[in-house]
Amino acid sequence: MDIKQLYKTTILEHNRNPRNYATPKEYTHKAEGLNAICGDQVFIYINVEDDVIKQMNFDGESCAISTASSSIMTEFLTGKTVLQAQALFADFCQLMDRKLNISSMPSLAEVNNMAGVKNFPARIKSATLCWHAMNAALVGKETATTE
């Protein structure tokens, strides 16, 4: 995929209007995602009730790919159970693994749009950072890195 196509079809729209970009007052889980090499920093806030993700928000300072990925992820995981979210995290890691050559996974629906980032290896961590932070929050860790 051409770089412009990737940005135009998916990244820029979410970057301009990121869904769930907010700092909520109430949440049950929170973690920070930190990409030390490039300086991306994302906070994920999750409100879980009866094992179901009722609300997921993010804030922080990061590039368009990271912002779009957070926007798509928070939208996608709202309403899923904690176990489902963790299983989807594992799927997303596989999708974004360059060695596996997977272009889409049925379980990931619209999240599959992020697979285009795989063509820009230096930026894969920008796309995966928020997912690592989300998983860290659910397992009770304060920080996650993509290293």
């Binding site: 090499i37 990061s62 790919i65 920008s126």
Partner: peptide, 22 residues
Amino acid sequence: DVHPHDLGTILDHYGIAIRTGH
């Protein structure tokens, strides 16, 4: 409005190598 990392990726597409980050 353009984060340095996005700029670095886009410029790379034009053959331009710059550094982004800290």
